[in-house]
């Protein structure tokens, strides 16, 4: 069971890293600003999942705190970027 489980966790890490690479491609390609914001948001979500999967890999609960912080800051920053795109200023 242990080998199967560690294989599955390794596969999860690989898939999440591939997904982050794909997001980076979209982040660099653009073409419009909203594409980049969407790619950044997805990249951030993948980073949160990567931190959770690392927690599974090392059997430690510390990574949960990191995932929580990434989720919180990701939400705030994406909202700020989207507001900026919509109106041209963040705080009205």
């Amino acid at each position: 069971m242990a080998t199967l489980l560690s294989l599955a966790i390794g596969f999860t890490l690989l898939c999440i890293i591939l997904a982050m690479l794909l997001c980076t491609i979209r982040l660099l390609l653009g073409p419009a600003a909203q594409d980049r914001v969407l790619a950044l948001d997805t990249l951030w979500m993948c980073a949160m999942l990567l931190s959770l999967a690392l927690g599974l890999r090392y059997g430690s609960l510390i990574y949960f705190e990191a995932a929580m912080l990434i989720a919180l800051t990701g939400f705030v920053s994406t909202i700020a970027l989207a507001k900026f795109l919509m109106r041209g200023e963040v705080v009205e």
């Binding site: 690989l14 898939c15 591939l18 982050m20 794909l22 997001c23 979209r26 997805t42 993948c46």
Partner: peptide, 11 residues
């Protein structure tokens, strides 16, 4: 993990 990969592929 497969769903995460498909989502990013769609992007």
């Amino acid at each position: 993990s497969i769903i995460v990969l498909i989502g990013a592929l769609g992007l």
